[in-house]
Write a protein that binds this DNA or RNA. Structure first.
Lengths: 274, 274
DNA sequence: TAGTGGTCTAGACCACACG
DNA sequence: GTGTGGTCTAGACCACTAC
């Protein structure tokens, strides 16, 4: 089934749970082969994994057009419908973007659409905001144990820590402290951050090949301490929304820990339950 | 196509955007009929709408088994694959729950699974919490203008306002003020609330036939005022997480406005970005 | 006009639950 | 065993985009 392809592709099938021959298809029934084993994975999920591998390996870069469904079906020797289902799943996870009549594209953080997925602060009117960044600091340090654990590093491994202030309508609104996986972000400096036009995750994606796929945020209400209050231009002790984010890249690998303190007087954090 | 069914069903097709005859199927091509008109809707979305109508009309009640895909396909004179796609969409919206080998069920708030969709507070360890309710108040009043607007009522229309305290590990943690659409919640009293075993939305669903489908929350950090601080056993001025929720039922009709004040010392509000 | 994704159908077999 | 949803295939036609 999967063997006998003409050319090698990215994500070379090394550790497929069950060879597709175990799932008999509509054609002439195939012998059970080595046996279904303990694990079973639908064909379309195996295809999905292969496509993900292509993305992860950079075979298809953010913003690019990927091969058509029929071409992929021919590659992997499955039907177009199976490829479709794999792509549907990846589109639902925001890794791919379908555009009728044009093709399927690799998602990128360089789009208005993508930015707002990771910034949930909106203005009183409900309109999403696009803050201006002011970078305060960018240092390479040894990871404190808490950060190391969250980034799945050893305590003392290198991390990059960035501090920045986000302004909305020229008023300081968010104070961010960002901890990045040191090995992946070699050469990141305050200058590069400040010079870059576009979203920070766009820079990470284009310049460091690290794509943020998903994140978890922990929200709390806290009181502003003195230095924070000064930076955010609120009274000491003022209530702030604390947002702790862990961002994951392919394979659920944590690559960023972020602590944001939000002034929620003129804006609020919006969340959909459903 | 859709006409000529043997028996009437719920959601009687009254205002279908385009009759299915406009979408020619695999069989012999059907004449364009009255013309495709301006709006076009795929067959499976039309089926989805019909199924939603069945749910809304109470033809299938929460927790119940709905007819099999083949039966529905026969009813609506479409293929099983088309019904499947409609059900898939409804399952993705948490209106239906598929269980392999058993059938498809109407989602209900009487499940551990459903509760946590609407309560995002988790303990420090990340474990979801199940608070104990203590009802403080339940009154029928005229809607203030702000609430009326959010519930799409006229100012002065009747609403029910409930105040309650939620305790976690016997410590007061959330103070809720809940405004409900008056006409839909006739006969709601503090006693009924207190007596009811199970989640509040379960009561609304079973006793009042109002199913919460979706909600939007606005989060802010605020300072505790005196009476709130006393109830939540925190110092006056302590930072609290303010959570304003608007809950919607079928057809995106708002039926509940809720303001919660959360103590986020021992717990946090968790959110997934993806 | 050609090529893409989007919809719809039909039929086969698999995995799972229940009696 | 029977019936359910889950997967897979194959082929048709539709809607949209670009050339």
């Amino acid at each position: 089934m999967f063997s006998g392809r003409k050319a090698p592709f990215c994500g070379e099938m090394r550790s497929m749970a069950t060879p597709p021959s175990a799932t008999s298809n509509a054609g002439p029934p195939t012998p059970p082969g080595p046996g279904p084993g303990a694990t079973f994975s639908p064909l379309y999920q195996q295809i999905k994994r292969l496509l993900t591998q292509c993305l992860q390996d950079g075979e298809w870069k953010p913003g690019e057009l990927i091969p058509s469904e029929f071409e992929l079906a021919a590659r992997y020797k499955v039907s177009q419908g199976t490829v479709r289902k794999a792509i549907d799943a990846l589109a639902a996870e925001n890794l791919l973007v379908r555009r009728q009549g044009r093709g399927t594209f690799v998602a990128t953080h360089h789009e208005a659409r993508a930015q707002f997925r990771f910034l949930r602060l909106v203005s009183e009117s409900g309109a999403p905001v696009l803050p201006e960044s002011r970078f305060l600091d960018c240092k390479r340090v040894r990871a404190p144990s808490g950060i190391a654990r969250q980034l799945e590093l050893r305590a003392g491994d290198a991390v990059v820590v960035v501090r920045r202030l986000l302004l909305i309508d020229e008023r300081p609104t968010i104070l961010d402290e960002i901890w990045l996986h040191g090995a992946l972000f070699k050469g990141l400096t305050a200058e590069r951050l400040a010079e870059y036009k576009g979203p920070m995750y766009g820079l990470f994606e284009s310049e460091f090949g690290v794509r943020m796929i998903q994140a978890t945020e922990k929200l709390r209400a806290v009181a502003a301490d003195e230095p924070t209050a000064a930076l955010l231009e609120v009274p000491p002790g003022a209530p702030l929304l604390s947002v702790e984010r862990i961002s994951l890249t392919y394979g659920n690998r944590p690559v960023e820990v972020r602590r944001g303190l939000y002034v929620t007087i003129r804006h609020y954090y919006e969340n959909e339950l459903g």
